[in-house]
Write a protein that binds this DNA or RNA. Structure first.
Lengths: 146, 146
DNA sequence: TTATCTGCAAAGCATTTGCAGCACA
DNA sequence: TGTGCTGCAAATGCTTTGCAGATAA
């Protein structure tokens, strides 16, 4: 299914299929995490050590372009990706202390996007929303440290 | 007023005041934009060419620490700052084509932050929200280009 | 055969930092 | 006098790209 999307995109753009790209996609889809290029490269290497960082990097860009992957930014200077297969639109709350994250849904945000777009005559395409804070474990740790 | 905040913070931390830091703050407060370190350094240099990039960089960090400046991330790989003096909490809608931005208010977001924090036992400290899309001018330009 | 892929190493680029001399307290 | 402040230049760390050999079509 996702393979079809990628194959179609490659054909449309005059690009070629390759077994390495397929492997990267395959490993990527098996995760449920938010992976940096380096993270994914680490996983891919376990499967096929001959696949280099650059290929993973470029494949992730392709996947983002054909809609199979989304970039997520946890404000820590590293680009992460998550796949969109069978995933509802969601957002993240990130612990600024340990980096852990949870996902949540907030349907109000679509309404906000629509309302503000109309008000300022923008064509909104997407939004980013993220809550930053401290998770329960880190909060307790900080308290006991005092 | 803002000078007091900075002075108090410096004293509390055992740091010293300096005329250069004062100048950076002064120029920063006169803007209403979202400035990168480089942007602000450009403005500061007009006022005092002897002030280097590093000082602006470090002063912005200080201002962020004492609450006078906020970091904003327009997803383009550059950190920007805006000052918080006499400013209500607001958000940005950014045109991904020309980089132009508008500010808006959306009170729903505080409720979302509170609700999700409670649900997942987080101590939320802040959130980021941003709408990305195409502004009216760029939208028209794209249409006529077709 | 020919354009596209790949891995490597190197380049880019914004952000940080080490250090020697300067300035505030 | 003694910290902390500054500017410069260099280091960092992630992202991106040039290139030569490998591969899909």
């Amino acid at each position: 299914m996702a393979e079809r999307v990628l194959a179609g995109y490659l054909r449309e753009k005059g690009l070629k299929q390759s077994s390495k790209r397929d492997k990267v996609l395959d490993v990527f889809l098996k995760t449920r995490d938010h992976l940096s290029t380096e993270d994914l490269h680490g996983l891919v290497k376990q499967n096929d050590p001959s696949i280099g960082y650059t290929t993973v990097y470029r494949t992730l860009k392709l996947l983002a372009q054909c809609g199979l992957a989304f970039e997520v930014d946890f404000q820590d200077g590293v680009v992460r990706y998550e796949h969109s297969l069978n995933r509802r639109t969601h957002h993240h709350m990130v612990c600024t202390s340990c980096g852990d994250s949870v996902e949540f849904f907030a349907s109000e945000l679509d309404n906000v996007q629509r309302r503000i777009g109309k008000e300022f005559h923008f064509q909104p395409s997407r939004h980013t929303f993220q809550i930053l804070g401290t998770c329960e474990a880190c909060f307790k740790k900080n308290q006991s440290a005092t």
